[in-house]
Design a protein around this nucleic acid. Structure first.
Lengths: 224, 224
DNA sequence: CTATTCATCATTGTCGACAAAAGTGTTACC
DNA sequence: GGTAACACTTTTGTCGACAATGATGAATAG
């Protein structure tokens, strides 16, 4: 795998890490949906100015992660089913585009290593119940696609969506049969990518997201 | 055309208009790429607190419209050719998805009125040189699609892209032959939408964007 | 018991001042 | 003439205090 292009420049200032920390905490649901965020508390916790926290709140709100209530504080956004379906639609086309670009930006054969990782060993992982490691493998694949699509704009959008729904990816793996089914789909995507078939890879990725969406629809009461 | 669903809630606070004003000014290039933005000047101009401007700057930066330089001020972003191509790729898939959703969300026959507007009269507009009105017609069509796709997330993303490249839409209309070609494409999209063929509509819209992208590639030195 | 009014509280929104950072221009030295 | 050092300037970044807002709880009246 060749060296990756540089990603989008982070926001200016010494407290960029605070923004990223909060994004991560929200994405991982360490900061659970519905939980309250207070400027003063966070300013103290991170030892930055309250003004800085306010700007970070603006960014988080713009990314759909929090809702600010005037004079009352901010709340981590809950995800409604309607939103999840919307996000799946958008993910379908954006991740399809990312896969197409990543395929076009890499030479055939570049995805051999990743394809191998999704081979027999991944199947053993799933059958053996090590879903945590399998989820991490999917994350690795996702990050490679993003790196190779070489598009800061696409990256920002995908990251923004992932921060809001990434937990679902992990949860849906639990659904009986979904992990093995998903594995086949990822293999299909990777095979097409590895052979330089960009359009096929896009269509297969789109189908993968549609199937995930269908899985969500069937089990939404249990996963959300 | 039935009554449109509600769009995404605007940011909290009494100065939401300032954010929208600045977004509009940047999109229209009234605030030209490269121009400097100073917190104090804007706070005075709009009679809001400097703190508020700082938050607005955060949002504008997040939307890719400005770059903030620590201790030096903010600058309206210039658009590089590489970015334009990226944005075309993303627009292709997002606008395709918007058209598909708008088609699925409306009954066949709902786009008759819009299709009529793109009929003989639009062709006369173009041949008569009234490209301004034609550009506005395209804008109207675009807004209708966005309304009917009924997706705040998609809307926000499309708006964000449009704010950065909307001026190109107007400029490319000037390219000899492009307006008439585009008219045919819009008619194709509208016909498919009007007949409820959502997949076809998506593919035709995607082709429309690809053709615009190709036009940009050919004339980029003149339009950027 | 219920509804209304008023006070309190929690948190943000703003203000004005000063600190911090970095670019620019001037001066001195080689 | 070129370079380095220093002072100045511009603008943001932060600080602490107070204003503003709206929810909540307590008291009062019917």
């Amino acid at each position: 795998m060749t060296k990756a292009p540089k990603s989008m420049k982070p926001p200016a200032g010494p407290s960029a890490d605070v923004l990223q920390l909060l994004r991560d905490r929200i994405a991982s649901q360490e900061l659970a949906p519905g939980s309250k965020l207070r400027e003063n508390d966070l300013a103290e916790e991170f030892n930055v100015s309250r003004a800085r926290i306010r700007e970070i709140f603006s960014t988080l709100e713009q990314r759909g992660l929090i809702e600010r209530i005037p004079n009352r504080g901010a709340v981590v956004m809950r995800l409604e089913p309607k939103q999840v379906f919307e996000i799946y639609d958008v993910r379908e086309v954006l991740e399809g585009a990312a896969v197409r670009r990543a395929t076009a930006n890499t030479k055939p054969g570049s995805w051999n290593n990743m394809l191998e990782k999704f081979g027999d060993r991944a199947e053993e992982m799933i059958r053996g119940g090590d879903l945590e490691t399998y989820a991490e493998l999917i994350g690795t694949f996702r990050r490679e696609i993003i790196i190779h699509c070489d598009s800061p704009i696409l990256t920002s959008m995908l990251d923004s969506l992932f921060e809001r729904t990434g937990f679902l990816v992990r949860r849906l793996i639990l659904v009986p049969g979904r992990a093995l089914e998903g594995l086949q789909e990822h293999r299909g995507v990777l095979t097409a990518m590895n052979e330089g078939r960009a359009d096929d890879a896009e269509q297969l990725k789109r189908a993968n997201i549609r199937n995930a969406r269908e899985c969500f629809r069937r089990y939404q009461k249990l996963v959300l």
